[in-house]
Measured scan of single mutants.
Amino acid sequence: ATNIVGKVKWYNSTKNFGFIEQDNGGKDVFVHKSAVDAAGLHSLEEGQDVIFDLEEKQGKAYAVNLRIK
């Protein structure tokens, strides 16, 4: 899925991951530091509006192509 809109539920910059809540009511999506770095960001803030693509690997969904809304 592409261009999914959501809000950062939480992001832990020490542990380098967090979760994004989808605006469409879907399951929360894992986001890793690598996606944050690829977006040219240092971190994510709770409540921040983002747009992302959804990829699945080994049955787990995660956010890629992250951008600030």
Rank of each mutant, 00 (worst) to 15 (best):
G59K: 08
K60G: 12
I68H: 08
Y11R: 01
I51S: 06
T14V: 15
K60W: 07
G6M: 01
A63R: 00
E55Q: 13
N3H: 06
D49H: 15
V29D: 01
D49T: 10
D53H: 05
V8G: 01
L44G: 01
A63L: 03
V31H: 00
S13I: 10
W10S: 05
A39K: 03
R67G: 03
S43M: 15
I51R: 09
K27G: 13
E21A: 08
F17E: 02
V50M: 06
D53S: 08
K15Q: 06
D53C: 03
I68C: 04
G26T: 14
T2K: 07
D53K: 04
T14A: 15
I4R: 08
D28W: 06
E46C: 04
G26D: 15
K9T: 03
L66Q: 00
K27V: 10
F30A: 03
F52R: 00
F19Y: 05
V31W: 02
Q22A: 13
F52K: 00
I68F: 09
I51H: 08
V5P: 06
E55K: 11
H32W: 04
Q48K: 13
H42E: 14
I68S: 13
R67N: 08
K27W: 10
F30Q: 02
V31N: 00
Q58C: 04
A1P: 08
G25M: 12
D37Q: 06
A39C: 03
G59C: 04
E56M: 15
I51P: 00
D23A: 09
V50G: 01
V50K: 00
E21V: 15
D53G: 04
F19W: 11
N12C: 04
G59V: 03
K57Q: 15
D49Q: 09
V5D: 13
E46F: 14
T2G: 10
E55V: 11
T2H: 13
I51N: 07
K33Y: 11
A38M: 08
D23L: 08
V64G: 07
T2L: 10
K27F: 09
N65G: 05
L41D: 03
F52D: 00
N12D: 07
Q48W: 13
G47S: 09
L41E: 08
F30H: 02
E56C: 04
G40K: 10
I4K: 14
V5W: 05
S13H: 15
V29L: 05
Y62M: 11
L41T: 05
N12G: 05
G40C: 04
E46D: 12
K27E: 15
A35D: 06
K33V: 13
H32T: 04
G26N: 10
A39W: 03
F19M: 08
K69V: 07
A1I: 13
K7C: 03
D28C: 04
L66S: 00
D37A: 14
V50S: 01
G18Q: 01
T14K: 14
K15S: 08
K7D: 01
S34W: 15
E56N: 07
N24P: 11
A1F: 12
K60L: 11
G6H: 01
G40M: 08
F19N: 01
K69L: 07
I20S: 00
I20N: 00
V64T: 11
I68N: 07
K33M: 06
Q48S: 10
L66D: 00
K7I: 09
K33F: 09
F19C: 03
L66F: 02
K15N: 11
I68M: 09
F17N: 02
G47K: 10
V36L: 13
K9Y: 02
Q58I: 12
L54S: 06
K9P: 00
K69C: 03
H42Y: 15
K57W: 08
H32C: 03
F52Q: 00
L41K: 11
K7T: 14
N24D: 14
G25S: 13
Y62C: 04
K57D: 12
N16G: 12
F19Q: 02
D37T: 09
E55N: 14
K15G: 08
G40E: 08
L44N: 01
K27T: 09
I20D: 00
G59A: 12
F17T: 02
Q58K: 12
N24G: 13
K69N: 13
W10Q: 03
I4A: 07
E56Y: 10
K57R: 07
K57M: 09
D28I: 07
H32V: 03
F30C: 03
K33C: 04
N12H: 12
A35G: 04
N16K: 15
S34T: 09
E55W: 08
A39H: 03
N3S: 10
A38K: 10
L41F: 15
A38C: 04
K27S: 06
H32P: 04
T14R: 11
Q48E: 08
K69E: 14
I4C: 04
Q48V: 09
E21I: 08
N3F: 05
G25K: 13
N16C: 05
